[in-house]
Structure formats: structure tokens, C-alpha cells
């Protein structure tokens, strides 16, 4: 029988809950659901404090992905969907969140979420998502000042990294660490296009390069690519990276090195920034509504 091909792009889907918070005592419960092109997150906040979240892969159907993520975040909390006062949908599938009260763009949500996750000193947010990459400048309140986005090309996105994880048969969560196990930093992969970079990498492997070195060359190419986006939008301290690639030390450390700036250490999963921002927007909207 044929063996099922390994899925090296797979990462652990999980949910999380803060055991110290009793949501029943909270006045306002809000949620943010970020349906991205690759992953979906649901975040629940109790009075503006992170209470629970779930992080999972987006399925082929956006509404289902939103519902699944939300149900998973609710799991074990004793909370029902109807207990949530307001839900904001965000991400590329934001209009497909059936239970959302409002949709907000992921740029605004990431900015807001980063402000919560990293504190009010953050001025530059780099969101490295599954199928896009955004450089966002924000103010002390987490409001967007300016942004630039690449959503046309897989270079510099999580999908690009998945292609490499599959090519080299390295689980995606190990790519970053592995890419740092080189004695000398190789020249970055020269092809911009992921399709061509793959061919280039195959050639490097044939030349006898170990996987570590090929990954180092690709992480470095990816860092280089997103830095040009960052610099066009302007870079100001403090700097933070959100999205899935924010967990890849191979890319993060190379961005830091080339930029000459250290990224703030995240308090939470970097992938939830968008949903978190959505939940914060939801809270602000509820407060605005009750003041009337």
C-alpha cells in the first residue's frame, strides 16, 4: 500500500484558555475571528483581557473555518456563542464569518493586536502571513499610520516557506532552528519567484549543500525580500513581527540582523494578532454603543 506523503507544512493546531479569568464576572465579552488564507484564529476577550483563543488551519470553506475556530476557542469555557456581546471578523475571509457583527480589515486589526501584544511603544509591525506580507506603521494607540502590502507573490510569505519545508522534507516548525545550524552564512537564494527558488535549491542540493545551508540561504532571501517592503514604508522603533513567520527564528534573526533592530519578544502566539485586534475593536464598538 502506498504510504501517505508526509505533510511537512503542518503545525500544531491548538486552543488556549486563561484559567485565572472568570468570564462570568466580565461586563463585556468580545471576540475576533481572523480567517486567513492559510490559518484561522478565534480570540475571546473578557473586559479587554485575553481570555481564550484557538489557532487552526483554514479549510476550503471560509464560513466553516470561522465556525470551527470559534467553537474550539469556546470549548471547555462553558461560554456559548450567545454570551459574546460583539464579534469582529477580519482577515481575507472576513466577510464570510457568519456570526460576526462587523468586518474590519486585517491591517487595522493587526495594528491594534500588536499594540496589545507588544505594548504601546510599537511603531513598526511586520505581519508575515500565509499568503501575504504587510509592513505597517502604527501610533501609540495602535492606529495605522501607513502600510504597504504584498499579496501578489508567494516570496516572503508563509506559503513560500511551506514549499521549502516540503521540498527539503523538514517540518515547518523546525525550519528556523535548522537554518541557524550553519558555520558560515551562505549567499541568499537569488531567485525571487518561489517556483524558481525551488529549482535553484534543488541545484544547490545536487551540488552537495546540506539542508541546513539551503534553508539558511532561503531564510536569508526571505528576510531580504521583506526588508525592502519594510524600508519602503519606513521603519521606526519599536519593531515587532506578527503572523506565522514571526515564530521562525531563522527568518526573524536575519531580519533583525539586516535591519539592525531587535524585534520585541511576543507575549502570545504571533498568529493571533489579527483576531486579537478584532476582539479589541469589538470591545471599543460595544463601549461606543452603550454610551449613546
Amino acid at each position: 500500500m502506498a504510504e501517505k506523503p508526509k505533510e511537512y507544512w503542518r503545525w500544531d493546531e491548538y486552543n488556549w484558555r486563561n484559567p485565572d479569568i472568570d468570564w462570568r464576572k466580565a461586563k463585556i465579552i468580545t471576540a475576533g475571528v481572523d480567517v486567513g488564507s492559510v490559518s484561522s484564529q478565534a480570540v475571546i476577550m473578557a473586559d479587554g483581557e485575553l481570555y481564550a483563543f484557538a489557532n487552526m488551519r483554514t479549510g476550503s470553506d471560509s464560513p466553516n473555518s470561522a465556525i470551527n475556530a470559534m467553537n474550539w476557542a469556546l470549548e471547555g469555557t462553558g461560554m456559548a456563542l450567545s454570551d459574546i456581546n460583539f464579534t469582529v471578523g477580519t482577515g481575507y475571509g472576513r466577510v464570510n464569518v457568519p456570526f460576526a457583527n462587523k468586518a474590519v480589515t486585517e491591517i487595522a486589526c493587526h495594528a491594534r493586536g500588536a499594540n496589545y501584544m507588544y505594548g504601546s511603544t510599537v511603531r513598526t509591525v511586520l505581519d508575515m502571513g500565509g499568503q501575504d506580507c504587510k509592513a505597517i506603521r502604527i501610533d501609540e494607540k495602535g492606529k495605522v499610520v501607513s502600510f504597504l502590502m504584498n499579496d501578489k507573490c508567494a516570496a516572503g510569505t508563509g506559503r513560500g516557506m511551506e514549499v521549502f519545508a516540503n521540498l527539503l522534507a523538514v517540518p515547518i516548525v523546525e525550519v528556523g532552528e535548522m537554518s541557524l545550524q550553519v558555520e558560515e552564512e551562505p549567499a541568499p537564494v537569488s531567485s525571487t519567484c518561489v517556483v524558481f527558488a525551488k529549482t535553484e535549491a534543488t541545484g544547490l542540493l545536487r551540488d552537495g549543500w546540506p539542508k541546513e545551508k539551503v534553508l539558511a540561504a532561503y531564510c536569508s532571501a526571505m528576510a531580504h525580500r521583506v526588508i525592502s517592503l519594510l524600508e519602503r514604508n519606513g521603519v521606526e522603533k519599536d519593531f515587532a513581527i506578527t503572523g506565522g513567520i514571526g515564530k521562525n527564528v531563522g527568518v526573524v534573526s536575519r531580519i533583525e540582523k539586516e535591519l539592525g533592530l531587535t524585534a520585541l519578544k511576543p507575549r502570545y502566539d504571533t498568529q493571533i494578532a489579527g483576531a486579537l485586534g478584532g476582539a479589541l475593536f469589538a470591545k471599543a464598538l460595544v463601549e461606543k454603543g452603550t454610551k449613546k
Binding site: 476550503s60 513560500g160 517556483v195
Partner: peptide, 16 residues
């Protein structure tokens, strides 16, 4: 999708 990598996923979605 413009990108080949993204277009591949789009083709799969279209098949579905």
C-alpha cells in the same frame, strides 16, 4: 491569484 504558488491553491479550490 497572479503568483503560481497561489494559483495552484486556487485551481484546487476551483476543482472542489
Amino acid at each position: 491569484a497572479q503568483c503560481t504558488v497561489f494559483a495552484e491553491s486556487e485551481v484546487v479550490s476551483l476543482i472542489h
